[in-house]
Write a protein that binds this DNA or RNA. Structure first.
Lengths: 206, 206
DNA sequence: GTCTATACTACGATAGAC
DNA sequence: GTCTATCGTAGTATAGAC
C-alpha cells in the first residue's frame, strides 16, 4: 500500500527532522514514488503530517488494546487485583518504551508535547485520553485515599518512570554503560520499575 | 553581548523547529543582526548549534551547582541524611522541569537524546555525567543493598518521574485539566513526587 | 566586527502528459 | 493514480564594502 508506505516513511522523517526539517521530496524518494503522490493522497505536507498523527494513534491503540480492556470494567475488582493490574499496565508501557520500534513515533509525539498543534489533538483524543482516564480510574481502586486530581498526577508520574527510557534514551544508555537497551538491560529496568511502582502504590499512597 | 543574544535566540529556534527547521536568517533577525554575523562568530550553522550545546551545559551546571555540591562529599553521611539529600535533588530537578524557562533548552536536549550528535557529547560530559554519577553514588548510601548497575538504573527512573513533566507536558496539562502548570499544580506534583520517591527509597529498594 | 549583495541549492506546490 | 517538468520562494554560505 503506497499510502501506508508514505505514512511510515513520513513518521520516521518528521520524527527525525521535525515538520519543517523533513522534506516531502525525501519522503517520496524513500517511499519509492514521486513527490506529487503526497499532494495527490494527502493534499499537502501538512495533510500528510496530520495523517501521520491519526496513523500513530491507531497503531498505539491496537498495541494497547489488552491494557485498555483491563481497565474497561472495574466493577467488583478488589484492591490487590487493582494493584496488580496497574503494575501490568506500567510494565506493558515500559516494554513499548524500550522497544526500538517505538523510536519513530515517539519522536513524533514528543515534538507535539512541546508545542502542540492540531496533530496533538488527534493523538490525545485518538488514544491518550482513554489510557490516562482508564489508568487513573484503576489507580483509584489501588489508592482509595487519594483525591481524583492526585490520582491523575500520580498516573502521569508513574508513566514517567517508563517514559524516561525513551525520552532520555541516550542518557540511560550512557548511565548503564551500554550502546542500546538489550534484553539484559530491559530485564533490569523492568524489574526496578515493578519494585518502584509497587512501593508507590502500597507504601506512599496507600 | 551579541554572541550571547545569538545563542539564546538560537536555542529557542533550534528547540522550536529542529536543526534543519530553524533558519539562520530568522535567528539573526530575531537577534537584531545580519545573518553573516553567525558565520563570523560561529563559523557555520553547525558551529552555532554546537556552541548552543556548550552554552546549555554551562547554564545547567550553574543551576545545579547546589545539588552537585550536595553529592561532592559523601564521607560520613548516614542513611537517613542520604535519603533526604536524594529527595532534595529530585525535587530540585522537578522544579526545573516545571519551570517554563526550561522549555527552550529541554527541547534542544530531547532532540539529542533521540539521535545523539556531537552536541550530545558536549551536553553529557559538560554536565549530565557528573549529575548521574553523583546521584547514583548518593543513592548507594540510601539503598546499600543494590548493585551499582541497579543504582544507575534507579537513578534514571527516579529522574523520569520529574522528566515527564517536561517531556510529556501537553499530556500532563490535559490530565490535570489545566492550560499550564501553575503554582497549584506544581505544589501537587512536587508533593506526589516526594511521597513516591520516599516510598521507592525506603520501601521497595531498602 | 558588522553590514549588503549575491551565488547556489533545495524546498513545496502545481500543471499536464500518460 | 503516478509520473516529469517547472515556478516561485527560502535556505546557507560567501564575497566585499565600510
Amino acid at each position: 500500500m503506497l499510502q501506508t508506505r508514505l505514512l511510515e516513511t513520513a513518521i520516521e522523517q518528521f520524527g527525525m527532522h521535525g515538520f519543517e526539517g523533513a522534506s516531502t521530496r525525501e519522503i517520496a524518494r524513500a517511499s519509492g514514488t514521486a513527490m506529487s503522490s503526497i499532494t495527490y493522497h494527502f493534499g499537502s505536507k501538512e495533510g500528510l503530517y496530520l495523517a501521520c498523527a491519526d496513523y500513530i494513534a491507531t497503531r498505539i491503540r491496537e498495541r494497547h488494546a489488552p491494557a485498555l480492556d483491563l481497565v474497561a470494567d472495574l466493577s467488583g475488582i478488589d484492591r490487590e487485583a487493582a494493584v496488580e493490574h496497574c503494575l501490568t499496565i506500567i510494565d506493558n508501557f515500559a516494554v513499548i518504551m524500550i522497544d526500538p520500534e517505538s523510536a519513530n513515533w515517539a519522536r513524533f509525539i514528543m515534538r507535539e508535547q512541546h508545542s502542540p498543534t492540531e496533530a496533538f489533538e488527534r493523538l490525545y483524543h485518538g488514544v491518550m485520553k482513554d489510557m490516562i482516564d482508564g489508568f487513573s480510574a484503576l489507580l483509584g481502586r489501588a489508592c482509595p485515599d487519594l483525591a481524583p486530581q492526585e490520582l491523575r498526577a500520580l498516573s502521569m508520574l508513574a508513566f514517567g518512570q517508563a517514559l524516561v527510557l525513551r525520552a532520555a534514551r541516550a542518557s540511560v544508555c550512557r548511565a548503564l554503560g551500554t550502546d542500546n537497551l538489550g534484553e539484559e538491560e530491559a530485564r533490569l529496568l523492568r524489574a526496578r520499575i515493578r519494585v518502584n511502582s509497587l512501593a508507590i502504590l502500597t507504601g506512599g499512597n496507600a
